[in-house]
């Protein structure tokens, strides 16, 4: 019975290795490994622009009993 399990384990390992190799090939073919500046900036957009900090401690209690003011059209998440 052990050989069934070990064959399965070997196939799983081989399959996963194959998938890793394919992932590297795919990423190369689809331009994921080119234009690194664009890649680094991909988590930003015009709503979440570069240069805007997006996290800070909350206001002290009592200072924001009303919803905090927001600049029109501004997002900071």
């Amino acid at each position: 019975m052990a050989w069934v399990f070990y064959t399965l384990a070997f196939l799983l390992a081989a399959g996963l290795s194959g998938m890793a190799v394919y992932a590297l090939y795919w990423s190369s073919k689809h331009g994921q490994l080119r234009d690194f500046e664009r890649g680094a900036a991909s988590i930003f957009d015009e709503q979440e622009p570069v240069g805007q900090m997006t996290d800070q401690f909350p206001a002290r209690r009592g200072k924001h009993s009303s919803p905090p003011s927001r600049q029109p059209g501004a997002r900071n998440d």
Binding site: G51, Q52, R75
Partner: peptide, 23 residues
Amino acid sequence: QPAGATAPTLFRPPPAMPVGSVP
């Protein structure tokens, strides 16, 4: 939840923070 909370976050607009040089 504060009334009118529709934006993803209710954080105050960030003050001018020294976030360093931005490329």
